[in-house]
Design a protein around this nucleic acid. Structure first.
Length: 209
DNA sequence: TCATTGATTTGCT
DNA sequence: GCAAATCAATGAT
């Protein structure tokens, strides 16, 4: 039943009420990162709805040297241990970045979406995505299944590519960046075909999953 | 309390 | 391609 505060768009309202189940997130983080490609993130605000298709993600593991969770729970990363389907938002430099938490200490960074509905400026890049979705630390710890930001299923037959993650200093060889093979909204040049490790193995045994 | 760091973005060369 | 902006979280002192 609709209340007077519900935004008028019946389509996004209906989708918003049928989010991906929590079990979707309770799987190995790289698989969730891969399968989030093509799904739709829906944001409800007092002003209305925004929806966009996820076209670029990165996976961060529990014992991943590049992950914020590498040293265990802290004031900043506690959402990474709050259970599958939690939204983890942190601030770096002058921007915010949003993640979908999977298993304890693991999360998927949302790097880019393709606008579908509502007002957008340019959500190509993790900081720009959070700006356009109005995500800050106020949304950190909210629930992607029942909260104000949700991910809903959407049919998508795009091609998927993978490559090394961007902007990190540790575990640079791990090929856990996933992107649409043809979306113009991918934030950086598409990963070339993965050529395998160049230097000494670091996190690779886990990264092969 | 102090110094360092960084899952970015932007602008300039 | 490279460096600056700019600040909160973190770790060392």
């Amino acid at each position: 039943m609709a209340s007077s505060s519900d935004p008028p768009d019946p389509d996004w309202s209906a989708r918003f009420r049928a989010p991906l189940p929590r079990s979707f997130y309770d799987r190995p983080v790289a698989r969730v990162a891969l399968e989030l490609l093509g799904q739709v993130i829906v944001r409800r605000t007092l002003a209305g709805w925004r929806a966009g298709r996820i076209v670029e993600t990165e996976a961060y593991g529990a014992h991943d040297p590049a992950s914020h969770s590498r040293g265990g729970p802290t004031a900043r990363n506690r959402s990474m241990f709050a259970g599958p389907g939690t939204l983890y938002v942190y601030r770096i430099h002058q921007v915010h970045c949003a993640n979908a938490v999977t298993r304890p200490g693991e999360a998927v960074l949302l790097r880019a979406v393709e606008p579908l509905a509502g007002p957008w400026v340019n959500p190509s890049g993790p900081g720009r995505l959070c700006r356009d979705l109005a995500l800050t630390r106020a949304q950190d710890g909210t629930d992607l299944v029942q909260g104000e930001v949700r991910v809903v299923a959407s049919p998508w037959n795009g091609k998927r590519v993978r490559g090394p993650r961007i902007g990190i200093r540790r575990a640079v060889a791990v090929p856990w960046r996933f992107a649409s093979g043809d979306s113009p909204w991918v934030s950086r040049p598409r990963p070339p075909r993965w050529r395998g490790p160049r230097g000494k193995p670091t996190y690779l045994s886990l990264a092969q999953s």
